[in-house]
Every structure is written in C-alpha cells, then in structure tokens.
Design a protein around this nucleic acid. Structure first.
Lengths: 185, 185
DNA sequence: GTTGAATCGGAACGCCGGACCCGGTTGAGG
DNA sequence: CCTCAACCGGGTCCGGCGTTCCGATTCAAC
C-alpha cells in the first residue's frame, strides 16, 4: 500500500527474491526452506524478511502473480469465436502450467488456502467463471458444473497428473467427462 | 517373520497402538505427531517404537491393511454379473472410503510412496487391474486406460473431492469420462 | 512366592526450519 | 565529499517433532 520510494538496491533485491522464490517454489513447493530461497537470490535470510513478513506471504505473492496471469488469459479467451474450445483451451492450459509448478499444486491442494485465494485471486475466479458460463450457454459443457467444481477438477487433474508417469493423458478423460453428450468425440 | 511369542500385555498394547494410529492418521494424515498417537493409545512414545521401527512403518502398516481390504472387495466383485457396474462400484467405493481417510489420501498423493505400495499393496494393484480389464472386455470402459491410469484417477478424484465442499459430485464427471461412448448416459 | 527378563513410559536428545536482531555497509541528498 | 538513515547479512533464538535411552514396572515361568 504505502510505497515510500524504495531505495534502488532494495528494489533490486526485492526482485531477486521474488525471482528466486518463484523458481524454488515451482520445483519443491512450500517444502523448500527459506534459507534456500535466500541462497538462490544471493541474499541473506534477513533481507527476505525485510520485504515479506513471512514465508507464507512470499508464497502468496508468487502464487497470486500466476493466478492473475491466468485471469488475463481467460479474459482474452472470452472473445474467441468458439466458447467451448476457448473453455477447454483454458482448462488444459492451466493444468499444463500448474503441473510444471509445484507451488500452484500446493496452493490448490491446501483447502485452508481457499481463504486467501478468495480475495487475492478474485480475478481468476471471476474470469474462469465467465468462461465456463459462456461455454455452458453454447451447449459445450454440461450444466451441472459451477466455478467451484471447475477449480476442484483442476486440482484433481493436477493430482492425477503428478501421480502418473506419462504426460497429459488423464486430462483428456476428465475433459471428456465435462463435455455435453452431443459434443462427445 | 520371527514371532517369538509376544507377551500378553505387549500384544494388547500393539493392538491399541494400531487402533489409535488408524484413527489419528485417518483424521490428520501423516501430519499427526507421534506423541498424539501414543496419547490416544494411552501409551508412551517408547512403546510405539518397540512395536514399529519408525513412524513411517506404522503408517504403512495402517495403509497396507486398508489396501488389502480393498483388494478383497475387488476380488469379490470379479464374480458380479455386470463387469461395468462392478468396476464403477469399486471405483466409487474406493474414492468414498479414502475421502474419509486422510491417511489414504496422503499415501496416494505421495509419489515417493509408489515404491512401498508396489510391493505391500500388490494385491490391490492386481485385483483392480483385473476388474478394469474385465470391464474393458465387456465394452463398458474406454480402452486407453491401464491400471496406473486408474490409480492416478483415483488420486485425482480424492484431490477434487477434498477441494470442493459438496459431496460426491465430481466423481460422476470423472466416471463419465471413463465410460465408452455407447454407455454414456 | 520368587526371580529375571521383557516391556512400559516419558524425559531427554538432536535436528530442522521459521522468525528475529544487530553490527557493518551502502546509497542518495546536501 | 560527507553524513546518516535505510538496508544487508548471517548468526541466533525458539518451538516442534522424530527418535532414543533408562529406571520402574509387570508378566510368566519355575
């Protein structure tokens, strides 16, 4: 909120910490020690705490950034011609990105995390909901699904993908379950 | 392996520890402290370690027991008339049971756990595989699925169910994705 | 009943990781 | 160039948890 003009080196270090955190969290999720993040950033642990009040706050900063990125993509897809295709594109893209990013898996898996994502990732919720509603109106997606179900299914896809060794096979099954009958291939 | 006739109180305490562990793990998964398990069992922590070399070993003992129970149910279902119905019954039953049991969720979610389940839960693998193959031969389940995919989808269902607040809604979607086209309802 | 060995219980240890603090350093304005 | 406030770094504290150890206790054989 208050930005009392950060000093130049402070801005630089803050960026380095964010970059290091994004990388480390993507590989190991919340399990990575904070010291490790500081080491990657070439910075002391104290510096991390100067910029982020806790490890959790840093984690949220990284995750929220990704969620907002997804929200932007979703808003762009809202103008696509085929609502069904747009929706399924979005679904697959989110799963693919998140499966490469342990941090997002952890964030989605934690039911306690629902709270913070409800406020910080509000854009993500709204945009994906719009995409879903549009696809349903076009008859491409079954009607008995809402935004919460959608996010739960994304989490389910991530768990399934992580458990299996092969790549992107199970998403198709779940996607097929989402289609309306006349769209089944 | 070697059973040098356990003393009576030792047998009793071992049973109490197992019962307490099953209860505690079911609620909190691997996160529960070992002291808590000992407390529930009305026993000291040292007693737990007399019977199980490590917390992990105790956890496996509980999980393997459940997996063997599932394997028995699967073998019974192999004699049912409708192969498709039998398979989906099994699938739903496993998901329902496991969703009430955090321990099984953790065990399935841990990719590192693949190792021990591959040996200890061998029966579970074999029985569910047989059920799947039979359902596929009867044309009830799509062909591009194997036993590994099946277990990954179970893990996915569990993640999705845990994430959502409502009960047993998402399983239907994933099950629908598993069906062959001519069986879609 | 006696004996001694197995078992019990919980106190103590060691490790690990998150949070904090203070002495040294650096950067930006005068 | 000088100054001082802000920032940096890593050493330290603290709590939690898995594991181990040992004196007290209990079982069961004789």
């Amino acid at each position: 909120m208050d930005k009392p003009v950060l000093r130049a080196d402070a801005r630089r270090n803050r960026a380095k910490v964010l970059a290091a955190a994004e990388e480390a969290f993507a590989v190991d999720g919340l399990a990575v020690p904070l010291d490790e993040i500081a080491r990657i950033a070439g910075v002391g642990a104290g510096t991390v705490y100067r910029h982020f009040p806790s490890k959790e706050a840093l984690f949220q900063a990284v995750v929220v950034d990704r969620l907002e990125q997804f929200a932007r993509e979703a808003r762009e897809l809202l103008t696509a011609e085929d609502p069904g295709e747009a929706f399924f594109d979005f679904f697959k893209r989110v799963v693919q990105q998140a499966s490469r990013n342990r941090a997002l898996c952890d964030a989605l898996a934690e039911t306690t995390g629902l709270g913070f994502k409800a406020s910080a990732g509000h854009d993500f919720r709204a945009a994906s909901q719009a995409l879903l509603t549009r696809a349903q109106a076009a008859g491409a997606v079954r009607e008995d699904i809402d935004g919460d179900d959608l996010r739960a299914l994304i989490a389910g896809c991530l768990a399934a993908e992580r458990y299996s060794l092969e790549e992107r096979h199970l998403v198709r099954i779940i996607v097929d379950g989402l289609r309306t009958l006349r769209n089944k291939t």
